[in-house]
C-alpha cells in the first residue's frame, strides 16, 4: 500500500515521531504489557505495521486485545471484545506478569532519572506535595518483572531530573549492579524514547546515554532538556523519519 498525503499533513508532529519510533522497537510476536496513552498508541501502531502477532496485555485483564482505535481507558469494552481472553486483575498481575510471561512493559512517567528510575507519585514532598500524581498503578511490578521495559516520555528539565521526588518504580536503581542485587526477575529499562531522541543504558554503569536524535533535533536541545549532565554516545545516530505508511496508519488509528 502506498499512502499519498498532501504536503502540509506529511509533516509529523513530535508526538507522532515519538510514537512511530517507539512502535519500531516492538518486534513481531512480542508479549507487551501496555500502559494507556502514547504507549498504547505505539503498541497498536506496531500491531498494524510490522508486528501483527504482537500480544497486547492491558492491566484490566485483557490478553491479546486488538482494538481498532486506541482506547481512552485501559478497560474500554472494545479491549474485552477483541481479546483472546479476559482474566481477573489478581490473575493478570500474578500468573502473567509476576510469573515472567511478559516480554516488554511499556511505561510512561512524570519524572525519570539518569538510571531510568521513574516517579508517578508526587512532585515535592510526599506529605505536603506540590502536585499529587495518580500513583503507582501497575508500574512498580511491571518495572520489576517484565523481561525488559521501554519508557516513553517527553524530554523536559521538569521530567528528566537529577533527583526523583519519589521513586515509584525501579529502573537501574543506583546504577552498576545495584538493580540485580534487588533480586528482580526482569532486566529493567532497555530504552527511553522521547520527543527529541532515543536514550539507551551504558552496559557498565546503567546510566542512560543519548544514542539517537530524531531528524532536525540537536544535541544542544537534548542537553538543555535534561536535568543531569547528559552523556552523548560516540556513535550518535539519527532515527529514520516516519514513513508515509507509518504516519497514515497512525492517523487512521488516532483519527487525527
Amino acid at each position: 500500500m502506498t499512502a499519498t498525503l498532501d504536503p502540509p499533513s506529511t509533516k509529523a508532529t513530535t508526538d507522532e515521531i515519538m510514537t512511530v519510533v517507539a512502535a519500531r522497537e516492538l518486534k513481531d510476536g512480542v508479549v507487551c504489557f501496555v500502559g494507556i496513552g502514547l504507549p498504547s498508541t505505539a503498541a497498536n501502531l506496531a500491531r498494524h505495521m510490522h508486528a501483527p502477532n504482537a500480544v497486547l496485555i492491558y492491566e484490566s485483564g485483557t490478553i491479546g486485545a486488538k482494538p481498532t482505535r486506541p482506547p481512552l481507558s485501559i478497560g474500554d469494552g472494545e479491549l474485552a471484545d477483541t481479546a483472546d481472553c479476559v482474566v481477573s486483575v489478581p490473575e493478570i498481575f500474578s500468573y502473567w506478569l509476576q510469573a515472567g510471561r511478559v516480554d516488554v512493559g511499556f511505561l510512561g512517567a512524570a519524572q525519570l532519572d539518569r538510571y531510568g528510575n521513574i516517579n508517578t507519585t508526587v512532585v515535592g514532598d510526599y506529605d505536603h506535595p506540590k502536585v499529587r500524581l495518580p500513583g503507582a498503578g501497575g508500574a512498580p511490578e511491571i518495572a520489576a518483572s517484565a523481561k525488559q521495559t521501554f519508557l516513553l516520555l517527553r524530554q523536559t528539565p521538569r521530567a528528566f531530573v537529577e533527583q526523583l521526588d519519589f521513586r515509584t518504580s525501579v529502573g537501574n536503581a543506583e546504577g552498576g549492579s545495584s538493580r540485580s542485587s534487588l533480586g528482580m526477575t526482569g532486566a529493567g529499562p532497555a530504552v527511553v524514547i522521547t520527543d527529541i531522541g532515543v536514550l539507551r543504558p551504558d552496559p557498565q554503569t546503567g546510566e542512560f546515554v543519548l544514542t539517537a536524535l530524531h531528524p532536525g533535533r540537536t544535541v544542544d536541545e537534548a542537553v538543555a532538556a535534561t536535568g543531569w549532565p547528559l552523556r552523548v554516545s560516540d556513535d550518535l545516530t539519527v532515527t529514520g523519519p516516519p514513513t508515509a505508511e507509518e504516519i497514515s496508519a497512525l492517523r487512521a488509528l488516532t483519527g487525527a
Binding site: 512498580p140 520489576a144 525501579v170 528482580m184
Partner: peptide, 9 residues
C-alpha cells in the same frame, strides 16, 4: 508478592 522492592512506597 514480588513487589515494592527498591521503591519509596
Amino acid at each position: 508478592l514480588r513487589g515494592y522492592v527498591g521503591t519509596d512506597l
